[in-house]
Design a protein around this nucleic acid. Structure first.
Lengths: 218, 218
DNA sequence: TGTACATCAGTGAACGCGCGTTCACTGATGTAC
DNA sequence: TGTACATCAGTGAACGCGCGTTCACTGATGTAC
């Protein structure tokens, strides 16, 4: 019953956006009266929070499953992320889209968010230095004048080590995880928002090219 | 007068989101009655369209100004984009955020969107091949088996050449422009949406590192 | 087998709210003679 | 200088709507004796 309500809620999110989600409309669509839903959810915010939580949970599970078997593979992780995003664009936007004003995610949700990041972090830590970095050998130290912005950021990460206790990872792995996350989000969100329409190219090929560029990343 | 209405509208967008924009609330805030606004805008949709148009126009002007003086510089373009985004996050999200369901941008707006892309395209065409590509020499042809995803995408772009007539550009330049756009959008939108909070690193340094990685892009 | 009762999902009316939008209007301003 | 008029920004009432949420209630179901 809660499940059916959530299904209808997703339909509403799909064609009117999260901010237009209405308990009365859901009830009407289910052939029930509005107040009936209060047996299952304590209110509108409760339902929305549930949707957001489920979306995060689903993404975390997807990413975890993609990272699980064998050695971590950037391409597999990327494909899993893309598949998840394309399967339900509105769910993707509920997680990574324009923040809903006034809405603050409860701690449980930020916990799942760091869980996702932890998977990426572990994957890139296990993968070791990237091809590009291996080819180039040790990168220039950030102390040298004229050091690259990438090396400077790595040094910064070493100083302000994120999740130092829970998820120790070399700065380079963290850097790669962040680039993985932001670059793929860039392609996916613009694609899903329809900003590529009318440009005539195949988003799939572009995505593949972006993923490839991540492989050589220091 | 239209200007003041739009100012108030932006304030509303800022702290309640575009979908919560209300003519009555704007009027109340200006000490007027609701219907008074109909002297200046034909309705709510008219006002929203105006806001979106202004946002696109502002971005196009910013990018054009950054590309204008001297030889095009990726770093200057990137800094201009970031500055524009940070100056007003809600404006940024109005352009690149979660699409408003049911809203279709009028032709004028998609025109400004291609204008922005054209500036990037011209800049990267004028800049010529990137450092990385120059160092590597001619990239492998897409016809070879085992060719890279990047080369394959370039070949695809050559076939499905976008804006072939209006803005002729080599596939490599188009590819770089797309990567510029999507990668920077990835960092900016996640940063502005608050997904970096709690991670403890400086988004500015990460942005700089991402920009640098664009310089060596084939 | 039959009766009394508890449980509880769902109803319908109601509250107060704010929305977009229309309509006939007021009343100040400026212009023409 | 004074009068008649046109213009037009803004008002207030009204329309119909849908929203979230509360409340007392019905009425079917299942259980206990």
């Amino acid at each position: 019953m809660r499940a059916e309500i959530k299904d209808r809620a997703w339909e509403q999110v799909a064609d009117a956006g999260a901010s237009a989600l209405s308990l009365n409309a859901i009830a009407k669509q289910m052939g029930m009266s509005g107040p009936a839903l209060y047996r299952y959810f304590s209110g509108r915010d409760d339902l929305i929070t549930e949707l957001v939580r489920d979306a995060y949970r689903s993404l975390a599970d997807t990413v975890t499953a993609a990272a699980a078997p064998g050695p971590p593979d950037v391409r597999v992780l990327a494909a899993a992320l893309r598949g998840w995003a394309l399967a339900d664009p509105h769910r993707y936007f509920l997680v990574y889209g324009t923040p809903v004003p006034g809405y603050h995610a409860p701690g449980e949700i930020t916990g799942i968010a760091s869980e996702i990041m932890a998977v990426l972090l572990d994957a890139f830590t296990a993968a070791g230095p990237a091809e590009g970095a291996r080819r180039r050998g040790a990168a220039g130290s950030a102390d040298e004048p004229g050091s690259s912005a990438g090396a400077r950021f790595d040094a910064h990460l070493a100083d302000h080590r994120v999740w130092a206790a829970e998820h120790p990872a070399p700065p380079a792995a963290l850097h790669r995880a962040l680039s993985f996350w932001t670059r793929l989000h860039g392609v996916l969100s613009l694609e899903l928002a329809g900003h590529f329409t009318g440009m005539g190219f195949d988003p799939d090929l572009f995505f593949a090219a972006e993923v490839e560029s991540l492989l050589g990343l220091s």
